[in-house]
Design a protein around this nucleic acid. Structure first.
Lengths: 349, 349
DNA sequence: CTGAAAGCGCTAACAC
DNA sequence: GTGTTAGCGCTTTCAG
């Protein structure tokens, strides 16, 4: 139990023969009014003693925890998901540069029921919160809706938003993502096109769908319900969805999926059913995750700047916290990455 | 700026007409000596006012942050890795039950150089640290070596250890994992067996190798260097390693890999080279991750209780912190999960 | 059964 | 230029 005696500013003051104020001033670089000699002496003593300011005391004084929380949804293995991983990395890196620490929370039902999402702030665990993977079923988000310019509990929703709830958010332009994919497929000559969208409780899945439909409509192409399926954002869902789609619409020549995982699932199901991608049917994904370039065939997909979204969300949250901003609603541009999973339809069609 | 006035114990005292002491006593359930009426009155006022104790103040007083840190290695996309994800989930869940918060840190070179791994403790950011994905190159771990019973900076190394450094750790029995795989393959009738081990700076990769070799030797089977490759724990590495192995030893009928990822990579490379698994060559993995059951063929693999390791590591860390334990060195048992990627060698061989 | 007061480690207003 | 002091919000002796 050699419990290292934690050495405090007091010790430095005593050892250096200066007062608490002086030491504090020197250590906080507010040393304008301190004589160089005193400054020097204090610094030396602090180093010699290995002084480290207590974050607890500083926090109490400043009424500031110096910590941000990331709230991850309770999906199976959220911590092993490439999408969330990318966001977490981005946020962590940016926060770290600004000397903020990151607390990890999972939106377990119990976590919400016991109002811990509010306690996070009220008990000064954190100064800000980033919400990942939110859906319209996440009622707790209403607790964070901006009322006027209330900045008591700064929250930023990451890469999504809730219609009808005034929440800070940073996201990709999924409406445009839908448009880009549709326009590309149309340009290749496709007319019978399907859509496998993500879980319908996710707002951006509707944005993508709307953009996709819009572009098709502009080209005089219909998107009947029979050509639309929910793939739940998973590989398995994508596989099941493409099968269902082809059962109803065997003549489909192309399909877009709301993320890359569903595209991968769909492609593998298509292969198993003996179809070739893109010769028999084209597939366009959305995300452009690392694996997109390495699957077979390499995936043509809409690139969504996920890392950048994480970065900007974190940056915005800090602005919110520091009062440099009252609200954030940002949409980042997307673009199409052409690889080899989409091609013109067979001449026979 | 409707900055909610943060309401303190003082407010509760004033409003309920009790003293600070009384309120504190009631709120901390040390209410033995408090009259039921006072108790009732205080509780009501606290609820009405929505009082929430400040963790900063409590922490300062108790000299305790109530936070644990998870230190993740700086590998690309560590936050998107199934193995680390499983550990993080396990730790987070267990910590949460005991009302501890989890801080996330990445072992960037800069993080170590600036001694932030020590500041974590010295500045009272956290009370304990869990190190994931540790290798023998992580010199910073020596800063945490137990000296006598120094418990000033409680640290637990998760699912690994460092020979020659006295560190607390909880891990799976990789020596036994090697033995189980070898014995199974030998039992199936294999004699020309290869090993694709993980990165050699990871101690447990040597344990597995030693166990594997040991069991082969006991059966009178040799494991020359030509039958051993480093697969770096990645899919690509596994694929490359199996190719190299077969170039040198075309008659190999079975191979073990140090984790499931390498097994997946190896199997895909084998398929591409026109070989059938397990008909032409058997593959046994190690980990038994979620995907192991779903790949093609389903993977025969040594099950390592990763989730349990995370849980136990967290539990042990808390015991260390609370002084209920002086040191932890625990090894959890593994077992073989038989699926379909390993079979007897062809009769012709 | 209850309260006054000290102190955790730090910052900053104010005095000298 | 430097020091004294109050106070951040809480727990905990120690007196009543």
């Amino acid at each position: 139990m050699a419990k290292r005696k934690t050495i405090s500013i007091k010790d430095v003051a005593r050892e250096s023969g200066a007062s608490l104020t002086t030491v504090s001033l020197v250590l906080n670089r507010r040393a304008r009014r301190i004589s160089p000699e005193t400054r020097q002496r204090v610094m030396e003593t602090a180093n010699r003693l290995g002084y480290r300011p207590s974050r607890l005391a500083q926090g109490l004084q400043a009424q500031r925890a110096g910590v941000l929380a990331i709230l991850v949804p309770q999906i199976r293995r959220a911590f092993a998901d490439a999408y969330f991983g990318e966001l977490i990395s981005a946020i962590h890196e940016h926060a770290g540069e600004a000397e903020w620490k990151i607390l990890l929370e999972v939106a377990y039902p119990r976590f919400i029921e016991t109002r811990q999402h509010l306690e996070l702030f009220d008990r000064h665990f954190v100064d800000g919160l980033l919400c990942l993977g939110v859906t319209s079923r996440d009622e707790y988000l209403r607790d964070f809706a901006r009322i006027g310019t209330d900045s008591a509990r700064p929250v930023v929703v990451v890469n999504n938003y809730l219609p009808g709830v005034t929440l800070n958010h940073v996201r990709c332009d999924y409406h445009q993502a839908g448009r880009l994919a549709a326009e590309y497929l149309i340009g290749l000559g496709h007319r019978r096109i399907g859509l496998i969208h993500g879980a319908s409780e996710v707002q951006t899945s509707w944005d993508l769908r709307r953009g996709f439909e819009e572009s098709l409509a502009e080209a005089g192409i219909d998107l009947p319900a029979s050509r639309v399926e929910d793939g739940l954002y998973t590989e398995e869902g994508g596989a099941a969805a493409v099968a269902a789609l082809l059962r109803r619409e065997p003549a489909l020549t192309a399909v877009m999926t709301g993320n890359d995982k569903m595209a991968v699932g769909a492609i593998s199901a298509l292969k198993e059913s003996g179809r070739s991608v893109p010769d028999d049917i084209s597939v366009v994904g959305c995300d452009d995750m690392h694996q997109a370039a390495y699957c077979d065939p390499p995936l043509t997909t809409v690139h969504t700047p996920i890392y950048e979204v994480g970065r900007r969300a974190c940056e915005s949250l800090l602005e919110l916290i520091e009062g440099r901003q009252q609200s954030v609603e940002e949409t980042l541009p997307v673009y199409l990455t052409v690889r080899r999973s989409a091609a013109p339809p067979r001449a026979t069609s």
